[in-house]
């Protein structure tokens, strides 16, 4: 890890000096921080600036997506809007990808990541998670004519996963015999399943359930795999003022059953009877 950091620094130094040589550095709107490392913004700084920057998904309906008018929508967005409202600031969304979520928050490019971010030990070393607002397990969706109903059936088959997701690490750790086909983005992964490049696709059960509902010929053969994972907002390591505020906020919102309202507004129309809101929603940060 140390060596890797040194490597990154060396390369960055080379690139940066190249920038200087070619003289482009001057025309960029570079903002030099006070310290040598990327810094976070405290709750007061965010309030003062009048704007909070939140990293979300822009192509993962119904959690985070962009509607036909270019507006962000979804379960995560509903929560993000509330955060901004309670802070009394504007919200700026940054479209992130599964693989780069940690990097965004670690470099302070966003204040909060609110992009269906599953809490894992590995990630908790790099970011600080707030209380959860959702829980998921893994699901596996496959075509009806070759339905996968048991993990053992996946041996020697091609399983599609999206890079940086829980599914990727889960299968790598627990089922090394399953050959994984990795994609950067969800849209690509679904296309791979649709045109038969892979035999099945695994990611959060919420995701595959919703997708199978609207794609005839595909069914979620495994709907609860692995441990129940929780989904929570994440902030940069050490940003305690923002973390504390978020935790208080989530607890307070539990009093008014906010996330059930969120579910009703954004998820109900998608899952209909396929899911029970109590199995997905976490109120007040408390997982039973």
């Amino acid at each position: 890890m140390k060596l890797k950091n040194l490597f990154i620094k060396l390369i960055t130094l080379t690139v940066a000096s190249l920038l200087l040589i070619t003289g482009i550095a001057g025309c960029g709107n570079a903002k030099t921080g006070s310290s040598g490392t990327a810094s976070y913004r405290t709750i007061d700084e965010i309030k003062q600036s009048g704007k909070i920057v939140i990293g979300v998904f822009s192509d993962k309906a119904p959690f985070g997506y962009v509607d036909e008018n270019g507006k962000y929508q979804g379960y995560d967005i509903y929560f993000a809007e509330r955060i901004a409202k309670d802070l009394g600031v504007e919200v700026e969304y940054v479209s992130t990808d599964p693989a780069s979520r940690v990097e965004y928050v670690a470099t302070g490019k966003v204040d909060i990541i609110l992009a269906n971010f599953t809490v894992t030990e590995e990630r908790a070393k790099q970011v600080d998670f707030a209380l959860p607002y959702m829980k998921v397990m893994l699901g596996v969706v496959s075509p009806d004519n070759a339905l996968i109903t048991d993990v053992e059936q996946l041996n020697a088959k091609n399983l599609i996963v999206v890079k940086g997701t829980t599914a990727e690490t889960y299968f790598e750790k627990n089922y090394p015999d399953v050959s994984l086909q990795k994609y950067d983005e969800y849209a690509d992964a679904y296309n791979a399943l649709l045109d038969g490049r892979g035999d099945a696709f695994s990611t959060d059960n919420t995701e595959v359930l919703a997708w199978a509902l609207s794609n005839t010929g595909f069914t979620v053969g495994i709907d609860a795999l692995g441990n129940a994972d929780t989904i929570a907002p994440a902030v940069q390591k050490g940003n305690t003022t923002l973390l504390d505020w978020l935790n208080d906020e989530i607890e307070a919102l539990g009093e008014e059953n906010f996330f059930h309202a969120d579910y009703a507004a954004t998820l109900d129309s998608v899952y209909g009877k396929a899911a029970n809101p109590d199995n997905l929603v976490v109120e007040g940060g408390k997982v039973e």
Binding site: T12, K31, T32, A38, T107
Partner: peptide, 10 residues
């Protein structure tokens, strides 16, 4: 990301 991490230039 790298430039931000290493030098804090955003």
């Amino acid at each position: 990301f790298g430039v931000t991490r290493a030098f804090g230039w955003n």
